[in-house]
Nucleic acid binder design. Structure first.
Length: 956
RNA sequence: GCCCGGAUGGCGCAAUUGGCUGACGCGGUGGACUCAAAAUCCACUGUCCGUAAGGAUGUGCGGGUUCGAAUCCCGCUCCGGGCACCA
């Protein structure tokens, strides 16, 4: 924005961008020089002389979800949460806390790597440049960070400890007997001494060779190499975690098709923690919606596992069902195409003792004119060739094929056909189901497509259409010689049948989870290398004293991508031939080992960064226990971090992974708390209007003018849209622009004033002047605009103003604590408006009111308030001044106005003492002119007085 | 399809959780200052009727509970988010 020439005509000392920027720079420099926001640890290298006393205060840890430093820098949407935590942190410092608040960077990741691929520039260089830009932008907003604590996940000093934690997980197993992780060495010791025996086969430990022992131990580790079906994304050249695949089977990033492939990949046994991850949510101060999302993701369901014998085989098919009560209605079974038993049970010939017509429909389009084996193979190829998006897009038509085998329903003794179909997923339950079409939509659909029998075992309501019935109702058709469920409701029937199954040894009560083990390896360059080497037996941990395992220097970072679903993953690190082979002496002489070539996913670094903030310079440990103890002790602590603010997009992924790592570290005794984040707050998003011209092209939003509710760009009418802020929409507004035009304090306040922190809202540069005018008015109440001389005096404020002041203190305190900054600001506006009116009348600015106002405003507009505080004669920063406390004696209102209602409609108002009796209120109300007139020719049937609120005459 | 949120002036949002709807701010209108404009300051500003006093009406829609409903209950509509063949 150009400064008008006439700017000199403005009062010289009026608060505006020029003054704002001058004092902002000044106070930012001073805070840095004075180490104002250094939060000392009670001991160690972060206990500095200047601030040592602060370590005696109770600690409080306020955390933002740290950003990925992109090349584009910050736009106005990014700092919303950062401002919120900064205001809260400053408020809590004034409340006597030693507040740990810092900002680091999640700097591994795809964009830097892709940029490197395009330009050949090493991602470290890009990353460092981007971080420097972010740091400068954040500094200009006046955040009170402890500069010693913000880490980069790409620093070798940091990822050394990421690797160390990986090794902790690798070197642990989950002991279900005590329900916690324990060091794997303890298991080995127990096996060696015979206090534990292997649970995989009958072969005694002592009789196993080295390879078998290693294999067994590796299978128990919390981090293991698994051969599970994984999400292979050839378009990105890497595998992805379930969470990184969208609902329509494409990659979260890049939108490439994703295929299920059985590949050998690193996995983390997060499933062992499913129950604890679920149960411990209850004690957390998180919004219910986020808890719910985590609960849904973990997906606990209770039911039973039931064994079905395969006719003519020694095999049984084990299924999981949440509706064991419907077992009598199981008329066929389905195995997932990948199920191992499929090969075992498929006969050479189609069974000939069945009705040929029915058999035809069972064989469907895959079984026609083929042997069962050919049909099943054909179907498996069909299923495997489909990406998930294709499977879903085929109108969800049920496909499958009869395997030719039969199984026995344990309740009815009937032989029921066994199918394979891709609507049954290998990864959930046992990969096999019993199908009860009468009580399940999918089974119903499949049964109709394949002409399978349908037997209702729950009686639907009388007028129920020809559809499956999933509701509660009395069991029917559900009895045999030894058990009778008929007449029972669903839940009683479940209990009874499970008891029966358990007595017969054909089934048991069982809980399953939707949550799967976490696929932890990626075929990328710009990530943490695994601290793992391989010998002929399998993976071996790199000794802790050889950490970090650093990324090798490379010039080609490209993963091998393809659009052929059958290519195999080829990590970029495979090209670092020299690095990939390493000679080490691990105790039995120098030997050559192959390095692990995969890297960790981006989540790894963000899983634990908050822990490193506590003790970032520690070279001997990830985190000193005494230091951690200081920051996590206190009655009200629900987790390591007191307040964690970030976007909902991390509701499942990051938060779940992070909680998992934390719990492993807790089990192993490295941290004191069970949970990382005690209070979680999800900020909303700032979006913005974007404009398209007649061709549908985006035009520069800042150049669009509004006239009579219509929008014009160069006098051409344009269309208004609403959406994300971004370059492609040409609607980017940056904090830098806002600081230049209004100053950082105005910008901070506007972001907080727009609405509640958890709500999304549209950015409107036009509205920013509102808070700017407020600061201007408050400044004018302190400084003469013409002369620059202070105008605050030691005069007594009016009793009304004092009352308002104390009511404002009460409200602002509450609002800050609950992060309701928008209403706190409104209160401060009202106070300042009242102050202005009083000054207009008396021409004196009462010091007591002004100083208290500045202290209350300081968390929101810190530079502004520091400056005026200083000008009022205070040498020290106000960052640690006690936050004002309201005097209840002064905040009460002696006289209040209450509305008078007649039949619920407001007909007048009375002024009355706040503590007036009901009788007095009624008397005053009746005396009120309008009320009296209205009551004159009416009969009062009832009078309702709500003390302090209202009085209502019910008349007829 | 299932599960969560949400809907209040021209706009962003308040409302002590059942007690004056619209605090606070933007925008708009009028005024002061100015040669003028900008900036600043003051007043008004939900809608409809009325010159006014005043009245009616109003929190997405339709019902209900209550002396009294933005708030509670029932039934919808629309918007946002999450999950999705999870047995």
């Amino acid at each position: 924005m150009t400064v008008p020439e006439t700017v000199s005509a403005l009062p010289r000392y009026r608060y505006g961008a020029v003054i704002a920027n001058e004092i902002e720079r000044k106070w930012q420099d001073r805070w840095e020089a004075d180490k104002t926001f250094w939060a000392p640890n009670p001991a160690g290298s972060l206990l500095d002389d200047v601030n040592a006393e602060r370590a005696n205060l109770p600690g409080m840890f306020v955390l933002d979800m740290f950003p990925y430093p992109s090349g584009a820098g910050l736009h106005v949407g990014h700092p919303l949460g950062f401002i919120g935590t900064d205001v809260y942190s400053r408020f809590q410092r004034m409340n006597g806390h030693n507040v740990l608040h810092a900002m680091g960077f999640d700097s591994f990741g795809l964009p830097a790597e892709q940029y490197a691929v395009q330009t050949g520039q090493h991602p470290r260089i890009t990353t460092e440049a981007n971080v420097a830009t972010y740091r400068a932008q954040l500094r200009s907003l006046g955040f009170g960070y402890d500069p010693r604590r913000g880490i980069n996940t790409t620093d070798t000093d940091y990822y050394r400890w990421t690797q160390w934690i990986f090794l902790q997980i690798f070197n642990s197993f989950y002991d279900r007997a005590v329900d916690k992780a324990r060091p794997i060495q303890e298991l080995i010791h127990e096996l060696d001494t015979g206090t534990a025996t292997p649970d995989d086969s009958g072969v005694a430990w002592a009789q196993r060779n080295e390879t078998d022992r290693r294999r067994y131990i590796d299978s128990k580790r919390l981090a293991y190499i698994g051969e599970a079906p994984v999400n292979w994304c050839p378009g990105l050249g890497t595998v992805l975690a379930n969470e990184e695949v969208t609902a329509d089977g494409r990659s979260d990033r890049g939108n490439f098709p994703v295929y299920k492939r059985p590949l050998s990949q690193w996995m983390m046994r997060i499933t062992e923690y499913a129950d604890r991850l679920l149960d411990d949510l209850d004690g957390l101060d998180w919004t219910e919606s986020i808890k719910l999302m985590q609960r849904n993701w973990i997906g606990r369901s209770e039911g039973a596992e039931v064994d079905f014998g395969v006719v003519g085989h020694d095999a049984t098919i084990r299924v999981f069902t949440t509706r064991p009560d419907t077992l009598f209605g199981a008329t066929y079974m389905v195995l997932a195409p990948e199920h191992a038993l499929v090969d075992v049970i498929v006969p050479e010939q189609w069974p000939h003792d069945l009705n040929a017509g029915v058999l035809d429909s069972w064989r469907g389009r895959f079984g026609a004119n083929r042997s069962p084996k050919e049909a099943v193979d054909e179907y498996r190829m069909f299923a495997a060739s489909k990406s998930e998006v294709e499977r879903a897009s085929e109108g969800r038509e049920k496909t499958g094929v009869f395997t030719g085998a039969f199984a026995t329903n344990p309740t009815t003794g009937e032989a029921i056909p066994v199918f394979t179909a891709d609507y049954v997923l290998m990864g959930y339950g046992t990969g096999a189901i019993m199908s009860v079409p009468a009580q399940d939509d999918r089974d119903w659909e499949f049964a109709n497509a394949f002409d399978l029998p349908i037997v209702r075992t729950v009686r639907p309501p009388a007028d129920w259409p020809d559809e499956p019935f999933l509701g509660d109702g009395p069991a029917i058709n559900s009895a045999n010689d030894s058990v009778d469920l008929n007449g029972l409701g669903v839940s009683e029937a479940k209990h009874k049948i499970i008891d029966w199954l358990e007595r017969n040894g054909t089934g048991e009560r069982k809980v399953t989870f939707k949550l799967r083990d976490w696929l932890f390896s990626r075929q990328r360059y710009w990530g943490e290398p695994f601290p793992i080497i391989h010998d002929e037996h399998g993976p071996i941990a790199v000794p802790a004293d050889l950490l970090p395992v650093e990324l090798p220097a490379m010039s080609n970072f490209e993963p091998t991508t393809s659009d052929d679903p059958d290519t195999l993953p080829a990590p970029p690190l495979a090209r670092a031939a020299e690095w990939a082979i390493v000679e080490l002496d691990l105790g039995d002489g120098p030997k050559q080992y192959r390095r692990e070539l995969n890297t960790m996913p981006q989540w790894a670094g963000s899983c634990w960064y908050y822990l490193r903030y506590l003790d970032p310079t520690n070279h001997d440990a990830m985190l000193d226990r005494g230091t951690e103890n200081y920051w996590t002790s206190g009655e009200d602590k629900l987790g390591t971090v007191d307040l964690y603010v970030g976007g909902v997009e991390h509701a499942v992924l990051h938060l779940l992974y992070s909680r998992f790592w934390h719990k492993v570290l807790f089990d192993l005794g490295h941290v004191n708390t069970k949970e990382p984040f005690g209070r979680l707050f999800n900020q909303g998003y700032i979006q913005a209007y974007a404009f398209t011209d007649e061709r549908g092209m985006y035009v520069e939003a800042s150049q669009v003018a509004e006239r009579d509710g219509k929008f014009f760009y160069n006098d051409e009418p344009v269309n208004r849209e609403y959406g994300k802020i971004g370059k492609s929409l040409k609607n980017v507004v940056t904090p830098d622009e806002m600081c230049a035009e209004f100053g950082a304090d105005t910008f901070r306040m506007y972001e907080m004033f727009m609405g509640p922190l958890d709500a999304s809202r549209p950015w409107q540069t036009r509205d920013v002047v509102g808070v700017h005018r407020f600061l201007q008015r408050l400044w004018r109440n302190c400084v003469d605009e013409e002369t620059g001389v202070g105008r605050v005096a030691d005069v007594e404020p009016s009793i009304e103003l004092v009352g308002l002041l104390h009511r404002t203190i009460e409200a602002v305190r509450e609002d800050y604590a609950s992060l309701s900054f928008n209403t706190a600001i409104a209160r401060l506006f009202e106070l300042n408006n009242a102050l202005s009116r009083e000054i207009d009348a008396t021409h004196e600015s009462p010091r007591s009111v002004v100083e208290t106002t500045l202290l209350m405003l300081a968390p929101l507009a810190p530079h502004f308030c520091e400056e005026l505080w200083h000008r009022l004669g205070h040498e020290e920063s106000l960052a640690y001044e006690p936050f004002p406390v309201a005097d209840p004696a002064l905040s009460v209102q002696t006289t209040i106005e209450i509305p008078v209602q007649i039949n619920g409609k407001v007909r007048g108002a009375i002024q009355i003492a706040a503590d007036a009796s009901n009788e007095a209120i009624e008397q005053a109300a009746r005396a009120q002119q309008k009320v009296a007139a209205a009551l004159a020719d009416a009969q009062v049937r009832k009078v309702i007085v709500v003390p302090g609120r209202t009085i209502n005459f019910v008349v007829s």
